[in-house]
Computed example of a mutant assay.
Amino acid sequence: MRTVRRLLYRDVFGAVSFVMLGFLSLFFFVDFVDDLDRMNRVGAGAAQAAWLSLLKVPGNVYELAPFAILIGTIYSLARLAQSSEFTILRTAGLGPGRALGLLASLALMFAALTFVIGDYIAPLTGREAMVARARNAGAAVSESGAWLKDKLSTPAGEWSYSVHVQRARAGGLLEQIRIFEFDAQGGLVTRLSAQSAKVSNIGVWTLEGVSATQWRQTGSPLLSLAPGKEAAPAARPGTGPAPAGLVEHRLAQLPWHSSLTLGVVTAAVLPAANMSTLELYRYTEHLSAQEQSAQAHNIQFWRKAFYPIACMVMVALALPFAYLHGRAGGISLKVFGGIMLGISFVLINNLAGHLGLLKNWTPWAVAAAPSLFYMGISLAAFGWLVRYR
């Protein structure tokens, strides 16, 4: 059995690696041409474009893993069937159960490798690519902006905050921040804007260039650490004296203690593709705690959690091809059929995600349904071929 395992694993790994290398070469070329045009515009050159394209390789490996595994495994098993090697193995005692067990172990290896790349390597290189591109272009890492919510309970009552971050730069620097503070009755207490902010891992925001307008001078946690609290009501240029009770503050720096840690803010301003499964989970928990809609990120979290299982599904889909006779279509036809299966899996997976978001379906069921459906198809086909062919 050790010899059979070595034969199958070496053949399948070789085929999958060959297919993956072909896909990566194509994607690298496309990314390089795209990045070369962008880098030439800012005077960075071809070397920087090649570096950016290399940083995208782990992300491409993660995205392409199920396709490469499916096509490579089909090619390997179909070739073994066409050359009668798999038939000889079956005659020597490789029954359906043992074949399924061998490929299941191989599928677990593929799933573990995909998980490591998708949760540790791809997010790191993806963020580094965004930072390097922004650094060369002199632009922000993210210009899309994000809204966040926070709550704080004090002896004086409960306070809620709506925070808007306009852009994020390299090194965790945020720019153009607006913070709105509300009391327990929903009344606006403080409106604050800051030119920039640094956020720590424990949720301490160091706001720079702060301009704050306070409607009530007592009880506000947001300005509790602000110097100059004794300032009198300020007059706004061109409008005459400020209304009674209205106080404006101009502060060079202001610390703000919040539950919005660096990880939460990063998750809000960066694409979900550059987040690990744990980061997605923490962000969905934060959204739920703040009573915000978390359906989209919940679906993304479960899809990422089940993504390594898709690699196991792809191996299961390839197994029936080993039991087809060599005359039942050539290898190219079987590989083409595998490509069509992979494309249909992606289409149904994406369709399920959109329908789950529109219909508010259970996120884990939305993410698991396509994989379970195709796993059922593969096992049914495998059982039918073993029984009747």
Rank of each mutant, 00 (worst) to 15 (best):
M109P: 01
A49V: 02
E248G: 05
E230W: 09
L254A: 00
V131N: 07
V247D: 04
L94V: 06
L24P: 01
V30W: 12
A44F: 04
L351R: 08
T277G: 10
S84C: 11
G338N: 01
G240A: 01
L26G: 06
G157D: 03
L24S: 01
W302L: 08
F13P: 01
A99I: 04
S259Y: 13
P241Q: 13
Y307A: 10
C311F: 00
S220Y: 03
S84Q: 14
G329A: 02
A78H: 05
A134N: 06
M20I: 04
A352C: 11
L379I: 03
T87D: 10
S276H: 10
A170N: 08
R38C: 04
R327D: 12
W384L: 15
A78T: 09
L77T: 00
N136E: 14
G203F: 01
G171M: 03
M340T: 13
S142F: 02
T218K: 14
E285I: 05
A365P: 03
W256H: 02
T213M: 12
T362W: 14
V386S: 11
P155W: 05
Q82Y: 09
V189N: 03
G245W: 11
T87E: 09
I348F: 15
L280S: 02
F180Q: 10
N349P: 05
P370G: 03
A310Q: 13
L26M: 09
T91L: 13
N136W: 13
G93E: 05
D35G: 08
S196C: 00
L188I: 00
N136R: 14
G95I: 07
L287G: 05
L333G: 14
S25M: 12
R6S: 09
R236W: 12
W361H: 02
R389I: 06
L246I: 10
T73W: 00
G330L: 10
A267Q: 00
L7E: 12
P320C: 11
T284W: 12
Y75L: 14
R236T: 10
W302E: 06
I299D: 07
D119I: 01
I331Y: 04
